[in-house]
Nucleic acid binder design. Structure first.
Lengths: 141, 141
DNA sequence: CTTGCCCTTGACGTCAACGTCAAGTCCTAG
DNA sequence: CTAGGACTTGACGTTGACGTCAAGGGCAAG
């Protein structure tokens, strides 16, 4: 298939596909006149690329990752990056879930305006400071 | 405290703190000479801002969100954005976890090079296509 | 008074993943 | 043959959250 059809199937722009190729993430055959031709497998391939992008991986890392996925083999120097990136993803998930709970509290607040939310579930948790020297009132946020 | 101390405590740059103020996320008192002064509570405040940022929320949304958090009340027009953003976070978490599992497979692959990974756990899942018209060999990726 | 560090505003730079426009080529339908 | 849509490369624009540099003021120690 040509680039427009692939773009339409996956739901990305043709610009993006050319960009992926430029970054070494995607290859293509060419017709005699220079137009790109893709096999059907490119659909899944681009979906995988998108998935890695949305996981926050950079083009450079994806570029070294894809051959490892294809060969089902990682060499040790890549291994470090992989473990490190895995940890980053874990942290990111935790942060997202934490923020998600915050939003849930706010959303539930509107649904049940009477039920008081758990203290500290909306920020400023450890307010255990008995701040004595501050002039009360007129304190900024 | 002044801006440098706040930055040091939270672990962000002074530039970031001024940027937050510029975006309406953070306020400060000023000394007679114009230097910013923050109460201790700003430490938690900035941590909360960082958390919302890392959750992928924009400055604009955080700017309308923070007063709602403070007042523990959301008005209906904000409510829509909130639910929408909640859904976006949920999707993002799912995408991240999926990519995390992919990385886990690769990592485990290096640890146990013999155990064969589950088919499809490394991309190109539904390869159930018996592609008949493709010339075998010399097909691009 | 000077040294030195912290602070101020203003303005321009950065980076990544594309969007967008330009000028020309390819190809299919009628 | 011609219209028009799909394609090519090249190059510049965009966006958000800051980084960084410039030029100057504030302030405690020696």
């Amino acid at each position: 298939m040509r680039i427009g059809e692939l773009a339409g199937r996956v739901g990305v722009s043709t610009r993006a596909l050319r960009y992926y190729e430029e970054q070494g993430l995607l290859r293509s055959q060419r017709t005699a006149s220079g137009q790109r031709l893709y096999p059907d497998s490119s659909v899944d391939r681009v979906r995988l690329i998108r998935q890695l992008y949305t996981a926050g991986l950079s083009s450079a890392l994806i570029a070294v990752l894809l051959p490892a996925i294809d060969a089902r083999h990682v060499d040790p120097e890549l291994m470090g990056l992989l473990v490190q990136e895995r940890e980053r993803i874990r942290d990111k998930v935790a942060g997202l879930q934490e923020a998600g709970r915050r939003l849930d509290v706010l959303i539930g607040l509107a649904a049940h305006p009477d039920a008081r939310p758990c203290p500290g579930s909306l920020g400023r948790e450890e307010s255990t400071e008995a701040s004595g020297s501050a002039a009360p009132g007129s304190e900024p946020v």
